[in-house]
Design a protein around this nucleic acid. Sequence first.
DNA 1: CCCCCCCC
Length: 589
Amino acid sequence: MALPIKEIKKYNFYPSLRARACRVWIAKFNGQPRSFNCVFVDNQGGAIQGLAKARDLQTFASIIIEGNHYEIERFYTYENIAANTVTAHDAVIDLKSDTKITAIEPIQPYVPRYYFNFIDYAHIITKSKGSRILTDVLGRLKALQPLEQVMVRGQMLENKREFMLENTHGEELRITLWGDSARDFDEFALRNLPSPVIIAFAGFHVTEFKGNLNFHLIFFLKKIFQIFIANRTNSSFILLKKKFYSQGKPNLKGTAASLWYFNPDIPECSTYTQFFAQVPIEIQQIPSSPNAVLSIEKQIKENRRTIREILCMNPYEHKHLRFTCQALIVEFDFPNGWWYPSCPKCNKKLSGGENNYTCMDHNAITSLPVPWFRLECIVTDGEDVANFLLFGKIAESFFGSSAHHYVYDKKFIDPLVIPPAMAAKLNKSMIFQLRFRDFRSTTNRCEIIITNIFDDTTNKNIHPLETPPTEAKSSTRSETSTPLSSKKQVLIGPCTSQNTVTQFRIAPNSLETPSQNISPNKETSLNYKARRTLDFEAIAQQISHEDECGNAIEAQGNLGNIDTSDTFNHLLLPLKKQRKTSSSSSKEN
DNA sequence: CCCCCCCC
């Protein structure tokens, strides 16, 4: 009796397993192959991942070919605890140099060639969002974006390429490839395929993009709601809102385990092919993102404006314009505090006060509020003065720490008292990348929002892991970071009445522990996202080594060779509709 | 990883 995969236990030894290798991939990290991976499937509903570390990678890659059948002899298993995993199996097969792999005849009864677990577009968020079990989807390739580079975390450029899939109900689904897989995606393979092109994307991580709700409308709706149904919790309002607006759109993000197959030979695919054979279809081109960049250098010079020029721009005519300005911050202005308590799920401001925090979108919160930056920078370019709004992730990068870290870990709880490390950012020449806020205020001028900050003295991005001067610790700093504190400052002649800090209070000592109203021992319940950038000392040590190994270097190295839309148009022209269905499947990675 | 997140 052959061993059923479902009965395999973790931390055990098995003499033999016969199965089909339905998926094979090599996981890469920063472009370097790290492990050989496969999914073994049997005919009793079982699937288990096999993994070989880098040392044995080539050996197994040359033996185990996707689609073929094998006997695996003398193997151990361990626990499947990976953050992302393709199978839900408790165990992983440890492929080591003494594991014997032999090709065998196809096992009977038949095991399907592909191992997929497709999810309906409509249920992706409820079933798969945030799940460590990766998700597979199938669809017609409706649109494709040229390879582009975007700034991520205000810190580095990364390759990105987007796809729009469509199912037979006309629903759309957005897929995003990042890094190496975005760069390596084979457009030429697409060019040779007849239309419609059906793609199976396998092994993707599901996230939710915020719905593009109209704030005006929601605000108005809520007021009306409160007037007519007073003294209720707003849960009814949330239900009402969800009825009218989708709560967000799923976005499938590529992982190291992601694969894709063009026109795979599976029953679901024929359904698609037949359905879309009725109408002429071409693959559309997704326009480049507004935030796509060619290089940091170009970005820094992009649409340079003086403050005078900015103040004379009509915000509503330049809603989508990104522009830059060289200036220095002379003061921070935060009448409502430099941080506010935000919803752990969406970072919107919580109302209701300390004992009754309520999110407009998510009602009562289940974990501690997440402190979130929001403050204005009073800036000058030597001629004029303006207010630039700084919040969220950009502020985190700029200050080198999350507001969460300052408030919970460093105990700078008073929102009206600013930590010294933040004040140390004043009076240094910077390049601000800016845009106008898409909100028509009835009272104020349109806010000018900071979307990125660059160090003017080095023309590099300001590294988010910079160690603040008050807590200097330089020995572990990476080669690629560009700490402002170590660079010569270029000061521009002041034109405001003051360029020193007098308008806000600075906490006297970073080590001081003011009376606190937030319990620090609840930290473990805090959401991971907010904790990511928490501690610059610890993370600087951890990351500096990785950076030296090529992380940032690779990002720099990619700056020169970016696909253009022109090239892309050219490529897609031949992708006209044809009747023939290709069964040739192709894969990457 | 990109979207938004604040304010009225």
